[in-house]
Design a binder for these strands. Sequence first.
DNA 1: ACCTGAACACCGTTCAAGT
DNA 2: ACCTGAACACCGTTCAAGT
Lengths: 225, 225
Amino acid sequence: MPRTPNPDLAARRKQQIVQAALACFRRRGFHQASMQEICAEAQISAGALYRYFPSKAHLIGAIAEDVQSGVEAILTQAHAGGDPVGALRAVALVMFEEIFVPGEGALVADVMAEAARDPALAQRLRDVEVQTRQRLAEVIVLAQRDGRAAAHIDAETCANLIFATIDGLGIRQSIGETKDPAKSMAAFDLLLGQLFAPLQPAAAPPVSSASGKKRTRAVVEDVVT
Amino acid sequence: MPRTPNPDLAARRKQQIVQAALACFRRRGFHQASMQEICAEAQISAGALYRYFPSKAHLIGAIAEDVQSGVEAILTQAHAGGDPVGALRAVALVMFEEIFVPGEGALVADVMAEAARDPALAQRLRDVEVQTRQRLAEVIVLAQRDGRAAAHIDAETCANLIFATIDGLGIRQSIGETKDPAKSMAAFDLLLGQLFAPLQPAAAPPVSSASGKKRTRAVVEDVVT
DNA sequence: ACCTGAACACCGTTCAAGT
DNA sequence: ACCTGAACACCGTTCAAGT
């Protein structure tokens, strides 16, 4: 007899609720979407929902974790392809095109605002990101050994800079400051070009175009939708 | 007889309300602070407040504008000192130390989330930033003429990258990812070092230390408090 | 002209009651 | 064991009534 009765049902219900919450948050934003709406979308009563998630904030926490692990998957996979800079470009491209979409991209800003005030959520996000960050640090050290990055650069500081730049460019894009993902990408390429010389030639393996893009899209949809 | 009766009183009341709102938002966050609290802090009734600001969102709009013009003042002033890179460092330092403070720095994320969903607020922010951005573009072109920045870099893209990086580093700091403003500054210096060679020597005019810091603090307090 | 504060519609969350 | 949905305390906003 299991200590937690019927864990399968619990897992199913949680997934069902997170899906509904994601749909509602994307449609109307975290604070604008009501719990009643989410309950209706998940076809469940308010009381039942609160058996699985103790608050509205925990819903956004679960969603943020999913997005984070999606990002890590993309980085890991593109990294395995042996093209570290291409891996970073693939991550940034997916972020700019799929996550920071003007209108629904506000969700990321909501998550950040929530995390800035809720230490538990912030900790959760940090825990998930630690792995992604270590992987990025490996990428940087690798590039330094190949002589494609200046040896004096501290890998940890560099990783912080790269993640922060993606976040910053993405948020500005979702505010409508830049609108076009290509412009965000151009700014990110400027950073990469200065950090990792020489910048990938145009004839490099097409991680960021056609087949590469299809592949990363699939990963994100797997996790987010 | 003035078309708007007693504009002096109106201006005074608006200031009084914005002050109160800022205090409450910093203390408890945008969504956590109630209009009743703000009314109490401003010593005014709910009905009276709504004569001056049509909604809670408009309060954060007014505050965001104040912060933006504070940033522009710092950039302009430090730029006038003839040290463009120092000017950028001064802006970043103030942002990391005064604006993105862990806990109360969540306000910036709130503003961004709000702007991502409220086109009118986004437009207001863009309008204020346009001037700052042009000033930054001038700084970059200047550096290129001096041979301190690679000529192939597009000034507009570079300005976007720099602002985005400050926002991104700041937000990560207020989430507690980096905590220490010095670490955010180290990452920003890494960017500046790659963009503007050679990086300012340690013996450069002390825009970012002692006197420079005092000065910029004064400006921000002038505008924000 | 300017203000008050009770009232309105709605929110996130809880809990007695059902099956 | 799991769920329902009315009830609770509170929110942003409005508006009749005051001075």
